[in-house]
Design a protein around this nucleic acid. Structure first.
Length: 164
DNA sequence: ATCGTCATATGAA
DNA sequence: TTCATATGACGAT
């Protein structure tokens, strides 16, 4: 079950690593120090299609544009609450931001603001699930699992001003 | 304006 | 149950 297939995604900002389960894209890693030597033995036709879509989407987001199409996401690793939050993040258009409390209201749990932050932190698919477009209520940047530098860069690229 | 403190939901140990 | 959070609101400085 936990046998994920990993494929490298080359972008102008580095090589991301996409992990696919049988249900879809299960995780996406930011470029690290890992070299691009990933062995990919048996890639099904479905995964090849997902990979194409994923690559296109990732490149779009890195370039500050909206992803036109997303691959199926395998969010089974998260709790139902987390999945609810992640799903909500999906609706945030490129170039716009929401606050943690806005997200909380959107899922009918206006007081679960901190929990929303926690869900963002465990988001397995950054960029495609735009957790970087979630700021604190006062416009502060908050935090980011993949590194604050990334969050800043992505927002700047999308034309969003962030307050220090 | 900045800082400390508390409230409140959720998840992990 | 206890602890930690990528928050938010409020009051004291």
């Amino acid at each position: 079950m936990s046998n994920l297939i990993s494929l490298p995604i080359k972008t102008a900002s580095g090589v991301f690593l996409a992990h696919y389960s049988e249900a879809g894209l299960a995780a996406l890693d930011f470029p690290k120090s890992h070299s691009t030597r990933i062995i990919t033995p048996k890639v099904t036709a479905a995964i090849r299609a997902w990979y194409t879509t994923t690559t296109r989407a990732v490149k779009a987001v890195v370039a500050g544009k909206a992803a036109t199409e997303l691959p199926p996401l395998d969010l089974s690793s998260g709790t139902s609450f987390q999945q609810r939050v992640w799903e909500e993040l999906l609706w945030i258009p490129a170039g716009e931001t929401r606050s943690y409390s806005e997200i909380a209201k959107a899922i009918s749990k206006p007081k679960a603001v901190r929990a929303v932050g926690g869900a963002c932190g465990t988001n397995p698919v950054p960029l495609l699930i735009p957790c970087h477009r979630v700021l604190a209520a006062n416009g502060k940047i908050g935090g980011f699992s993949g590194g604050l530098e990334w969050k800043r860069r992505l927002l700047t690229t999308e034309g969003t001003a962030v307050r220090s």
